[in-house]
């Protein structure tokens, strides 16, 4: 499979990159690590006339300690994240999640910004042009039917990145810029919950930084991921748990799930279940039930929705107990 010809633009300054994005808005794709975009371009899922290579933009690389917490440039590799001493110390949950992404070689290329912006995935979408053509194009690309929920008009492609559930638990914010302005949004508000139009990002905008607030530093945590092979694969269901303790009690517990909905989601109502008069095991089970109810997996990936939802329950319980035992 080859990629349809395009013009490659490699600016050295962020301002040039943003001006280029504005100029070719709607007909340009941003290339960071390329580990999601290039395979998709080979499958003709994207056929832009221009590709913006942001590899040379120093302003959006690296991990910086600030007064408010930590600032991570969007073009920071996952390899750099998993090896950052500062992140290992202060935000171990993010490091744990980053370590499970794909394989070590892919993490040398893939970036945190790319992981946050990762396209949603579906068995009927991540296929070659001829495959999609012979089965009938779907809502997400070129068609108007859904093979997953026949008769439906909503796209259910699953959001399948590993670091966003950890970032959600850590209450991360992202900075989004265009040529004339910059805005900062919580990660929660970035995703729409729609499989096709899955993120709130205008065609002339670029995700430039990710901020981890100081208030979320030193939370313990655990990340549990279901996949078929022990490496390389995307998650088919996964859960992140962040926990802050005080005198042995749970002061704050946050849980987020991924790969089972069109967006990574924080599980609501968790805090009301902690520290009630029940055993820790029982509490973990009730929280797991909440997480399983938040998951709405459909037939978008290789394993059945029933199994993936059950795994969310099992993994949530295990992850809560594991975070509690630390």
């Amino acid at each position: 499979m080859t990629v349809k010809p395009f013009q490659l633009l490699c600016p050295r300054e962020l301002s040039d990159a943003l001006a280029t994005l504005e100029k070719h808005s709607g007909n340009i794709r941003v290339l960071a690590g390329g580990t999601d975009l290039l395979p998709s371009m080979r499958q003709r899922l994207f056929e832009p006339e221009y590709v913006l290579d942001i590899r040379q933009l120093r302003e959006i690389q690296g991990i910086r300690l600030t007064e408010q917490g930590i600032e991570i440039g969007a073009f920071t590799t996952l390899h750099a994240i998993e090896n950052s001493d500062e992140l290992k110390r202060s935000y171990p949950l993010l490091v744990e999640a980053a370590k499970t992404v794909a394989s070590p070689v892919i993490r040398n290329m893939a970036t945190i910004g790319g992981n946050v912006c990762l396209d949603t995935r579906c068995l009927w979408y991540n296929q070659s042009l001829s495959w999609r053509k012979s089965c009938g194009f779907c809502i997400k690309k070129d068609g108007n039917i859904c093979h997953v929920a026949p008769g439906g008009t909503k796209c259910w492609a699953a959001f399948s990145a590993d670091t966003p559930p950890a970032l959600l638990c850590l209450q991360a914010e992202i900075e989004i810029r265009n040529a004339s302005s910059s805005r900062r949004v919580t990660l929660e508000k970035f995703y729409t919950g729609e499989g096709d139009n899955y993120r709130r990002l205008q065609p002339d905008e670029l995700v430039t930084h990710i901020f981890l607030p100081r208030g979320s530093a030193l939370y313990g945590g655990a990340y549990r991921k279901l996949r078929i092979r022990g490496s390389i694969d995307y998650p088919l269901a996964a859960v992140a748990v962040a926990l802050k303790r005080k005198n042995g009690d749970f002061e704050d517990l946050r849980i987020a799930i991924t790969a089972v909905n069109p967006a990574p989601l924080l599980v609501a109502g968790v805090q009301s279940l902690v520290n009630r008069a029940m055993t820790r095991e029982r509490m973990a089970e009730e929280i797991a039930e909440l997480a399983a109810r938040t998951a709405k997996p459909l037939t978008t990936s290789a394993l059945t929705p029933e199994y993936r939802r059950e795994i969310i329950r099992v993994f949530t319980k295990r992850a809560v107990l594991e975070a509690a035992a630390d």
């Binding site: 390329g34 580990t35 290039l38 590709v51 290579d53 590899r55 070590p104 070689v105 040398n108 290329m109």
Partner: peptide, 21 residues
């Protein structure tokens, strides 16, 4: 991983890199 090459000493996938980059 069959296409792995070293780019500035770091292993990367040649099938997922643009030559011009």
């Amino acid at each position: 991983g069959a296409c792995t090459v070293l780019v500035d000493g770091i292993p990367m996938l040649a099938c997922t890199l643009l030559a011009a980059s």
